[in-house]
């Protein structure tokens, strides 16, 4: 697992992808910080993260699109799958590498916190919970992107499909709110239960909820499991 993780970390920064991800993330977050906090003279990090959550749609596909699809197109998956490593450790290694790049990028934005704390008062626990929630949400979506990347040989297809699915997660709350017919109440409940961003909003409000953490960890685990199944199934395929 460590070998795959290291290789993937290397790949992010041997190709432009890691830099593109970091650059676009930091640019957008910088704009939000400048306008939302500095110009608005606000030390409120929650609203920044809350406003910023749309960024996942743009940057997660960059991070995940080539993870599995490129291996297949390149046929380098033949090396991985014929080596004495388990499929699960390959998938988890790649997942953790993507999460690490995300974490490091997020870490850089800690500078903003330092800037704000130098000139104003911030609530440290609240900021930490915000960061934690934002990171977990990102990891969940990375798991989604990884699954999609395992389903195709084309990076472009993977990126667009990941974008679409994350958009769907975004619209879920809105859709649930629009459904008023009582006989569809079960659908509303299902959508609300599935909604990743609703869990994120709780963190964003500064509430550390254990259910939220468990929900997100299981969410990521389910998608990693699905990724393993998709690859395993292809090996058995007779189509």
């Amino acid at each position: 697992m460590l070998a795959v993780y290291n290789r993937e970390m290397q790949a992010y920064f041997l190709t432009p992808i890691g830099y593109v991800f970091m650059g676009s993330f930091l640019l957008i977050q910088g704009i939000f910080f400048t306008f939302g906090n500095i110009f608005a003279q606000s030390s409120d990090f929650s609203s920044m993260f809350s406003n910023l959550s749309f960024i996942f749609m743009l940057v997660v596909p960059i991070l995940t699109m080539r993870l599995m699809s490129d291996e297949r197109r390149n046929k380098s998956d033949q090396l991985l799958l014929t080596s004495p490593v388990s499929l699960l450790s390959i998938v988890v290694g790649k997942f953790l590498a993507a999460c690490t790049v995300f974490l490091v990028t997020l870490g850089i934005t800690g500078i903003y916190v330092l800037i704000l704390s130098a000139f104003g008062v911030i609530s440290v626990p609240e900021v930490l919970v915000n960061y934690f929630g934002f990171f977990l949400t990102g990891c969940c979506l990375i798991a989604v992107g990884l699954l999609i990347s395992a389903m195709t040989e084309s990076q472009v297809t993977a990126a667009i499909a990941t974008f679409g699915i994350i958009l769907l997660f975004f619209l879920m709350d809105g859709m649930a709110a629009m459904i008023t017919a009582p006989f569809l109440a079960f659908l509303v409940a299902a959508l609300q239960w599935l909604s990743l961003f609703q869990r994120f909003e709780a963190f964003s409000a500064g509430i550390f909820s254990l259910t939220g953490v468990i929900y997100m960890l299981s969410f990521a685990a389910v998608f990693l499991y699905l990724t393993v199944s998709v690859i395993e199934k292809r090996r058995w395929s007779e189509g």
Binding site: V4, N6, R7, S76, Q78, L79, L80, P84, V85
Partner: peptide, 24 residues
């Protein structure tokens, strides 16, 4: 195993690649 298309990572040097293979 050497498949029909060698399973290489184009963005690595030979040494980096073979180190990775040693690791896995």
């Amino acid at each position: 195993y050497l498949p029909e298309q060698p399973p290489l990572y184009m963005d690595m040097t030979v040494e980096e690649y073979l180190r990775f293979v040693c690791d896995i």
